[in-house]
């Protein structure tokens, strides 16, 4: 697996660029990850990102968009507005997690 330099740090990523070691992530890194894909984080962005991190601790896998909506309580429409186009993938990238595996 490749190692890439993000915000002056050595970060382990997969071939696409998603982090493979969630423990290398912190909030400062998230700002840079978001900037990498053209997103400026606001308070509204942090809510789903914090949910993803917290949910990952117990589930050991990345929450799907539906889970962020039903368990995290953030409407799907809002997630599409915050992370346009590919909300599930963009959120997990910024949260330093793999993209979700579930179909729904």
């Amino acid at each position: 697996m490749p190692v890439t330099t993000i915000a002056g740090r050595e970060i382990d990523v997969d071939a696409e660029g998603f982090l493979t070691k969630p423990e290398q992530w912190d909030e400062a890194l998230a700002e840079t990850l978001a900037a990498n894909i053209g997103i400026t984080l606001t308070d509204a962005h942090w809510v789903p990102i914090h949910f993803l991190r917290k949910d990952f601790e117990t589930q050991k896998e990345t929450a799907t968009l539906r889970r962020v909506s039903t368990v995290g309580g953030i409407p799907v429409k809002e997630l599409f507005a915050l992370f346009p186009g590919k909300p599930a993938k963009k959120m997990s990238y910024i949260a330093g997690l793999q993209k979700p595996k579930g179909c729904v």
């Binding site: 990523v13 990498n36 186009g85 590919k86 993938k89």
Partner: peptide, 14 residues
């Protein structure tokens, strides 16, 4: 410094 590996989220709509 090399370019970091960043996923391509090119908008499919585009």
């Amino acid at each position: 410094m090399s370019t970091p590996i960043v996923p391509s989220f090119d908008d499919a709509a585009g």
